[in-house]
Computed example of a mutant assay.
Amino acid sequence: MKYLIINGSPRHGHTWEIVTRVKNTLSTTDTNTTFTHVELIDENIPYCRGCFSCFENGEDSCPDSDKIGPIVDKIRECDGLIITSPVYALHITALLKNFIDHVAYLYHRPEFFTKKALIISTTAGMGHKKVGKFLDETLRNWGFNERFKLCLIDVHDTNGYLPLNIKEKIDKTTLKFYNSIESKKLKSPSMNALFMYNMWRAMAYNNHIPCDHDFWVENDLINHEYHPSIPCSFIKKMPCKIFYKLMLGFLSKNSVKKEEV
């Protein structure tokens, strides 16, 4: 299996020790395992300008597409994503937030519906749950089918070693992550995922942003309450059918029309 590790920390500290344990467990479980590393500190990605070009003109028009595009391609190519961030000021690091800002178009144009991810975060105090929740929500909006979390507090004993209970938790979550990928089974989406999908779908249908419309039409997503490769019962989709029609009505009445010149 091919794993991509996106390291949001500027150094290899406590969070990286968890990554090392995860890598060892995955490598022991499957001897054909390979890892690709993206150290965001070394990518020297400029701050997102908020120019909106990725939305309006496509992600290739981003001023930093030469740095962002290859990382997104690596996500497409991997079997599993491992994404890390220690807690900085009760949130993710600026490095990781900057990368996420650059790929904000993935909220509008989600594509990783068959992918699985492992989120790793550590803290000496608090904020680990908030970081885990934010990254889980972000990856869900990118389309990720299943996300596993290792969000830990005070992960070292007084001698600087990982306690046995922490090691067991890391190994248990890592094996769940591995087994989910290896089985190739896809989970039914949560109601939050369904509603967000249908909100972007309605905006795309309404041609709110032409690039979004083209993406949803070209990938045959516009006619589905969720990605057709993901199992989802008719009953579960029913509220989204109603929500989608309500969104279409709302958008048709509230879209700003350009003035003809």
Rank of each mutant, 00 (worst) to 15 (best):
V103D: 06
I18L: 03
E17I: 08
G132K: 04
A193P: 02
T20Q: 11
D101G: 06
P10D: 03
T122Q: 08
L118R: 02
G127K: 06
L221T: 07
F177C: 04
L106K: 08
S85W: 12
R49K: 11
C211M: 15
D30S: 06
T84V: 02
T25S: 01
L162M: 04
N57V: 03
F234K: 15
P163V: 02
L175N: 04
R140W: 13
E39A: 13
L248P: 11
T138K: 07
P63Q: 07
L106H: 02
D220N: 14
E59R: 15
V131G: 03
I209V: 15
K97V: 00
S9N: 10
S255P: 13
A193I: 06
K237P: 14
L90T: 12
S53M: 14
Y197N: 08
S188I: 01
I71M: 04
H208M: 12
K129D: 14
D42Q: 08
N165P: 12
F177Q: 00
D154M: 01
F243H: 05
I166T: 08
N57M: 01
H37G: 06
Y205N: 14
T114W: 09
S252Y: 11
M247V: 05
T36P: 04
P163Y: 05
D136F: 12
S233L: 03
S252D: 10
L90P: 12
K236M: 14
N159L: 07
V19C: 10
V19Y: 09
E146R: 08
P228N: 03
T20M: 11
I166E: 09
I82F: 11
E59G: 14
F99T: 06
E111V: 05
R201S: 07
C240E: 01
V72H: 08
V261T: 13
L118W: 06
M238S: 14
I92A: 04
V103S: 06
Y105E: 05
L248F: 02
T28I: 13
S180E: 08
Y3T: 03
S53C: 10
L248T: 03
W216L: 06
D220W: 01
T33E: 03
K2W: 00
W216R: 00
I75M: 13
L162W: 00
H102W: 08
E39Q: 11
P70N: 09
N206Y: 04
P63K: 02
F113E: 00
D60I: 15
H156T: 11
C240L: 04
L194Q: 03
